[in-house]
C-alpha cells in the first residue's frame, strides 16, 4: 500500500465516522474530543483501552497465524467463546490458589479454543469442506452453547440473571495500576504478538507455514507436510482465540454470561487485515480499535452517539483498504 492510498483510506474513514457522529446529532469535533478523552486522557481511560486490546490482539494474532498458513479461520468468535466457557467452567472449581488456578484456567481456555477448531480441521482436510463455512457454522453452535451453559450446568444459583458462578477473587487478575482495568493479561497478549512475529518471520517453522500458505502444492512438492502445517496453524489459531476468551474471564468479567462477545473475533480479523497480516501491525491495529471501543463507550455515555461506532469504523477502514488495494493479495 502506497502512503497516498493509506492517507486516502484514513481520510475517508474519518469522514465517514464524522458523518455518522453528525447523524447521531453530535458535533464531530466535540465527539472527537470526547472519544480521545475516553480512550487516552486519563490513566483509567488508557487502562480501559489496554484492557479492551487484550482479546482483540489475541484474536488478530489467531487470524494472522491461520491466514498466513492458508487457513481461512473466520470462526475466531466461536473459539473465543469456547475458551471463555472453559475458563468459566474450570475457574470456580480450582479454588483460590492463584498461580496454579490461573494456569489451569488459561490452559483449559487455550485447549478449548483449539478443540473447537478440530471439527473444522477434520472437515477441511478429509471432506474438502471450506474452513470458511465450517468455522462460521461453529460460531453459531458456540453461541448456542454459551446460552445453554449459563442457564444450565454453569448457572450461578445465587444470581437472578443467567450467568455462571464467579471465579474466586484471589484468582481474578488484579489491575497493574490501581484504579484502572488493565491487568497482566495485556502483557501476555503483547508478548505473544512479539513471539508470533519472531516465529513467523525468523524461524524455519514460520517459513514453512508461510510457504504452505502461499502455495500448498509447491510446499508439498518441496517435501513439506502441508496438511500437518495447516492443521497445526489452525489449532494454534484456535488456541489463541480461546486464550483471548480465557483472559477476558480471568481479567475482566470473572464469569460467563450471554451474549458474551459482541463480535470481538470479527473485529480481530479486521485488525489483522488492517495490520497487513503481520503480527506487529495487527497488534497496533488491535490497539487502535480498542482505543476506538473505549472512546466510543465514553461517547455514547456523554453525547448519545451509539457505541456501535466501534464496529462500523474498523469495518469501513478495512473495506477502504480492500477497495484501494484491489486484487493484490496480503503478503
Amino acid at each position: 500500500m502506497r502512503p497516498l492510498q493509506a492517507a486516502a483510506v484514513a481520510a475517508g474513514t474519518l469522514a465517514a465516522a464524522a458523518l455518522l457522529v453528525a447523524l447521531a446529532g453530535a458535533s464531530p469535533l466535540a465527539a472527537a474530543r470526547a472519544l480521545l478523552d475516553g480512550a487516552l486522557a486519563s490513566p483509567a481511560a488508557l487502562g480501559e483501552t489496554f484492557a479492551r486490546s487484550t482479546a482483540l490482539v489475541l484474536t488478530a494474532l489467531g487470524a494472522v497465524v491461520a491466514f498466513r498458513s492458508g487457513v481461512l479461520n473466520i470462526g475466531l468468535e466461536g473459539q473465543l467463546l469456547a475458551g471463555a466457557a472453559a475458563a468459566a467452567a474450570v475457574g470456580p472449581a480450582v479454588g483460590n490458589l492463584p498461580f496454579i488456578g490461573r494456569l489451569a484456567v488459561l490452559l483449559a481456555a487455550a485447549l478449548a479454543g483449539a478443540a473447537w477448531v478440530l471439527p473444522a480441521a477434520w472437515l477441511a482436510e478429509r471432506r474438502k469442506v471450506p474452513a470458511v463455512l465450517s468455522t462460521i457454522l461453529l460460531n453459531l453452535v458456540a453461541a448456542a452453547g454459551v446460552t445453554w451453559l449459563v442457564r444450565g450446568p454453569l448457572r450461578d444459583p445465587a444470581g437472578d440473571y443467567p450467568q455462571s458462578r464467579p471465579l474466586a477473587d484471589a484468582l481474578v487478575l488484579p489491575p497493574l495500576v490501581p484504579g484502572t482495568r488493565a491487568t497482566a493479561a495485556v502483557v501476555v497478549a503483547f508478548a505473544l504478538a512479539a513471539l508470533a512475529a519472531v516465529v513467523l518471520g525468523r524461524t524455519a517453522l514460520g517459513l514453512k507455514l508461510r510457504a504452505a500458505g502461499l502455495s500448498p502444492r509447491a510446499a508439498r512438492a518441496a517435501g513439506l507436510d502441508d496438511v500437518g502445517l495447516r492443521t497445526g496453524a489452525f489449532l494454534a489459531s484456535g488456541a489463541l482465540a480461546g486464550l483471548a476468551g480465557g483472559l477476558e474471564v480471568l481479567a475482566i468479567t470473572a464469569r460467563l454470561y450471554d451474549p458474551f462477545s459482541a463480535g470481538i473475533g470479527f473485529t480481530g480479523i479486521a485488525a489483522a487485515l488492517l495490520g497487513g497480516m503481520a503480527p506487529a501491525g495487527s497488534a497496533v491495529a488491535a490497539l487502535l480499535f480498542a482505543a476506538l471501543g473505549a472512546g466510543s463507550s465514553a461517547l455514547q455515555r456523554d453525547a448519545g452517539v451509539p457505541s456501535a461506532l466501534a464496529s462500523v469504523v474498523p469495518a469501513l477502514a478495512v473495506l477502504g483498504l480492500l477497495l484501494a488495494r484491489g486484487r493484490r493479495e496480503a503478503p
Binding site: 481461512l72 470458511v132 470479527f266 466501534a310 469495518a315 480492500l322
Partner: peptide, 21 residues
C-alpha cells in the same frame, strides 16, 4: 477484484455495527 472472502467477513461486521447504530 478484492478477495471476496475478506470483503464478506468485514461486510458482516459493518452490517451488524451499522444496523445496531
Amino acid at each position: 477484484r478484492a478477495d471476496p472472502i475478506l470483503v464478506g467477513t468485514v461486510w458482516n461486521l459493518l452490517a451488524l455495527g451499522a444496523t445496531g447504530f
